[in-house]
Amino acid sequence: MADPKPPRKPTALVTGATAGIGHEFARQLAAGGHDLVIVARDTSRLEGVAEELSSTYAVHVETLSADLSQRAELQRVADRVADADRPVDVLVNNAGFALKGRFLQNDVADEERHLDVLVRAVLVLSHAAARAMAERGRGRIINVSSVAGFIAAGTYSAAKAWVTTFTESLASELSGTGVTATALCPGFTHTEFHERAGIRMDAMPDFMWLDARRLVADALADVDKGRVVSVPGAQYKAIVGALKVLPRSLVRNRARTVHRPGSR
């Protein structure tokens, strides 16, 4: 009699997996026994991260090089998410970037690409994942948003507000299916994201900075609890709570002093 086939490991697909919060999600999910599909634009860096994670955690790591601002490349990722023969159990929509200038200073083509990655990619991949996962009766969708979505500071802030509201709506639609959706809303986090966005690391006091490892661990714990909105860090929980009750005129006026929209 043939030996029984070993149980399939759960698989997580993480976009923007080569750096920052995305890399930390990939690392912690691999440490927890998940096989991975990691997505990023930089093929050589992607392969380096895949080798690191597979050798460290003894998991299978598949790479998928894609520019999520390009509709055809985004569709390749969506098709992988929806593949019934190779199910994805956890989707982490993390890929993103911030533009350095203000809205009226930026080229509109750059703003459109920004919107494509922060909004359209989240919509398309969440749609593919939610349908496939609901059919199987299990799955987790994590959309990385930002505390910036609770203020009014440029198109990054607006896009992240969309991500949070969209995820809340998706979670309601998925209620009772065995699939959860969580919007992760971090504040300033020690990653290269802020460097690339031109944000000085000394522009904020130390207590406002989050550690990526703790942030992701707390986020995954919130996902396990079925929380729809996860705000890591006591300081940011307090800030978000205050922003919800402050007059929007005051929030808007305060946001005018913010030079950079991104906090992630």
Rank of each mutant, 00 (worst) to 15 (best):
L64R: 12
S55K: 02
A153K: 10
G96W: 00
S249Q: 10
V59M: 00
P4T: 08
E47Q: 14
G198W: 08
A234Y: 02
R256A: 09
A161S: 14
P232C: 05
L115G: 11
Y236I: 01
P232W: 12
R140W: 04
F97I: 12
M208I: 01
R252V: 09
V77H: 09
L115M: 15
H190R: 15
D107T: 00
F103R: 02
A219H: 08
V49G: 09
A152I: 04
N253R: 15
L250Y: 07
N93T: 10
K5T: 11
A98Y: 00
D116I: 02
R136M: 04
R227D: 13
E195Q: 14
S145Y: 07
A255G: 11
A255E: 00
F166I: 07
E195N: 12
V92G: 07
D107K: 13
L99N: 05
P232N: 10
A217V: 01
A132H: 07
L250T: 15
L184C: 13
F188E: 03
H23P: 00
E51K: 12
P232I: 11
A129T: 01
F97D: 06
A31D: 10
A183E: 11
V59F: 00
A153T: 12
L74P: 08
R102N: 11
V90Q: 05
S263Q: 14
L184Y: 09
P261E: 04
R260L: 04
R102G: 14
P4F: 01
A78Q: 03
S146I: 09
A78R: 05
A19D: 13
S54R: 04
A58S: 06
F166D: 04
K5G: 04
V90N: 05
K225A: 15
G32E: 14
F188R: 12
A159S: 15
T257W: 00
A183F: 04
S145F: 05
K237A: 01
A158Q: 06
V14G: 08
N143H: 13
E51V: 06
R196Q: 13
F25E: 04
A221N: 09
L68A: 10
A181V: 12
V119A: 15
L125N: 06
Y57L: 02
E51N: 14
W162N: 06
L220D: 04
A31N: 05
T164V: 07
L53Y: 06
A109C: 01
R76A: 13
G149K: 07
V231E: 12
K225P: 02
A212K: 14
